[in-house]
Amino acid sequence: MMLEMDKVCAAYGPSQVLHEVSLKIHDQEIVTIIGSNGAGKSTILKTICGWLGTTSGQIQFAGERIDNNETKDIVRKGISISPEGRRVFPKLTVLENLEMGAYVCTKREFEEEVERVYQIFPKLKERTKQLASSLSGGEQQMLAIGRAVMSKPKLLLLDEPSLGLAPVMIDTVLEAIKIIKESGVTICLVEQNAQLALEIADRGYVLETGKIVLEGMGRELLRNEKVKNAYLGL
């Protein structure tokens, strides 16, 4: 078991957003969490990566409790995130962004890893000396994902990587996600675009107002009537 959330509750101040969320992510899986805007998908990722504390419940990573640990320590255990809205460091160059991604690594590991990222995203190599703020939305998304894999994570959290991208760009990003998975990384993919997410996911969870309401294999959920009506617009 890579990650297990057990009845996790979380809140922003007085307003509770997650209600006893339980989910499991096995080694080498792509697991997706789908749900409409405001359901709490990003909040789940925030509790995993330590940006937000939980109010109750447990999160275990590789058999060890990590809920309410400090973010900087959670990365070192092997979890990294490509956040919603990309959030690349705008005034750092592409290469410097990747360097920050490898902050917990040695220089040697950084040099190896950067080559691998440039293989996955050749576009980034062309832009290596450019400021991240000068990149297009799609390129920034590549950079955010590239930066997240620099630390050689065991578990990669992807928050809405397709948001606001042109269809060709979405394909590039999906291809990259598959390559990253092939290299042995477990992936938790959060998406509003349910169709796309369920197509590449092994398993999926459906989140509604902070509660898991449905879970199943990716293919199953694609055929599920409720999912079709609510999330696939069919």
Partner: peptide, 19 residues
């Protein structure tokens, strides 16, 4: 670089492992 990163986006800097 970690300083610049931190003051551009503190939360993400933490997620890079920066103290």
């Amino acid at each position: 670089k970690a300083m610049r990163a931190t003051f551009q986006d503190k939360e993400v800097a933490m997620a890079m492992g920066i103290d």
